[in-house]
Design a protein around this nucleic acid. Sequence first.
RNA 1: GCUGCUGUAGCUCAGAGGUAGAGCACUCCCUUGGUAAGGGAGAGGUCGGGAGUUCGAUUCUCCCCAGCAGCACCA
Length: 653
Amino acid sequence: MAQVTVNQVKLTLPDGSIREYDAGITPGEVANSIATSLGKKAISATVNGAHFDLQWPINADANIAIHTMQDDTQALELIRHDLAHIMARAVQAIWPDVKVTIGPVRDYGWFYDFDRKEPFTPEDLGTIEAEMKKIINARDAVKTETWDRARAIKFYEDAGEPFKVELIHKIPEGEDLRMYWHGDWQDLCRGPHLQNTGQVPADGFKLTHVAGAYWLGDSSRPMLQRIYGVAFKNRNDLKAHMTMLEEAAKRDHRKLGREMNLFHMQEEAPGQIFWHPNGWKIYTQLQDYMRRMQEVDGYVEVNTPQVVDRKLWEKSGHWENYQENMFIVEVDEEHAREKAINALKPMNCPCHVQVFNQGLKSYRDLPLRMAEFGSCNRYEPSGALHGIMRVRGFTQDDAHIFCTDEQVEDETKKFVTFLAKVYADLGFDQWKVKLSTRPEKRVGTEESWDAAEAALANGIKAAGYDFELQEGEGAFYGPKLEFVLTDAIGRDWQCGTLQIDPNLPERLDASYVGQDGNKHRPLMLHRAVLGSFERFIGILIESHAGKLPFWLAPRQVVVATIISDADDYVHEVVAQLRAAGVRAEADTRNEKINYKVREHSLGKVPVILAVGAREVEERTVSVRRLGEKQTSVSPLDDLIAQLKAEALAPDLR
RNA sequence: GCUGCUGUAGCUCAGAGGUAGAGCACUCCCUUGGUAAGGGAGAGGUCGGGAGUUCGAUUCUCCCCAGCAGCACCA
């Protein structure tokens, strides 16, 4: 008699106990075997670190942990992923001719891309939500199978789903394809999923908006319609999330910029900023601070032209590679001695090499750290513009460090240390560093890339920081570091950067005389700490919700009268504060103190001094700090001494 | 640049095929009030720009510009 042998697998549970099962056992069955109640509560499992569907077979010894809805990470991933499918099913139920594509989970929710002629309207979102709730209430079972490629392709060709067919062609040969069914609705999907649609909380999700998105992220491919949703385990979490978004919207620098009268922008100069006195005060304070800091750190400051002949841009390579982003200036023949085509500089680097190239440089001059608060203009695509964070006219706190290969690592360490000090001074403790390595299209030898990438990695580690790797994201000439801050609603913005560039010194023929008496080519490190003043100020405003630290606040003190008999004293107080280096203004308007306090509080003025008969009499002021309800009375001289100290920039304290 | 949405007073917004309205802000008057809006009066708009349909367009249609969300881009 033939003996049937079934392989056994040993599964190790989180408590360390080991159970044996027939190979091919599913996590669902394992959960049931542990306890019926666990079987009912189970939603998925982690098997050797991978997130497993309850229906997937386990064919080898493994560590296993069964998940329930109590496990937030897994529960939310499943809920959001199932909702992506449920939404796609709802859309196809309402509009059967819509083609489906992909629908991944993302922060707080998911999206799904559809191909449909007519645009989805905001009203459609409500219709889709209602249909989704029907599907959830139907509690349809979720089933999964693996299919071979040919069968899956045939299936999607018959179903008229061309995008799915294309996706399958992108999946490596030999891999089985996992098919999922939510009820009778089918999708190609990696999984895992919940076991029935009813496990998704019907009141914990919301469709938020529709937007275009290119198929496969490729702008030469068709544009699809992407519907975004957010989902949580219950209604309260959803509500909390929506409240958080409302709060974030209040910190939007575009809104605060208007309310605090910092700047404006208008149609005639898209992507460029009209700085008002208040906003410009922030800007100049920040610039003064950076200038002092850079001087201490061994930089020299230069200033270079705005409008430069195309000849230089041809030499630097910008004319060929960057022209579509440049503002081109053609000089009218009648006014020009010779007809010339110029461009507004999009970057400072070529000009800095011109400064470097004046006179002979020795190895003793290196590293040469050349800084400029360089105004640049770039013709950014219209859709990329965003408040003052992404603009067409901006000023970088730019510098180029001319140095030798051997100096790169030390310069990197020095720079990162410098940047960290600045960020800390400005109130940023949370920032990310990304190291972008060699891209496919590149110049230079493998050895030089090895060395450059290692120098950056070692430099940043030596400074005591960790980095994320972005493979293949470097510039064509060299690797780079990006220092990333986050805005009010969680969007990342690159601020600081450090890039190694052997290319531009070569193209523009920069050289120094080495110890050996021969000419050598220096490396160039492009670097910025804030990135651009415009973007950085945008981030500053959002992260402080407009309540800037005292030294940066454009309006630091308002001295407000309670009665008009206090006018003279108020003017005296303002004069003394100004003499002490504090930005102070008088508010002697014929309004009640309540009104004045409200207005200046909304204006984010950090200190309001109220003055009535008592204060005049006693030569004191009543002090109210922004955000505090309580007031205190202080002798005028004491307060002035205190605010004078507070008004100092961090590096001057 | 692409898809969709939006554009009415300084700001936030309502409105309708018959050349516009609110609140706040602004100006003036009354009020001198002790910590987040005291009262009254007044002034303020080529309804983003251009063309078309119509007796008549700010409203409907088309084109352009700008903004917003996302995608793409980001030397």
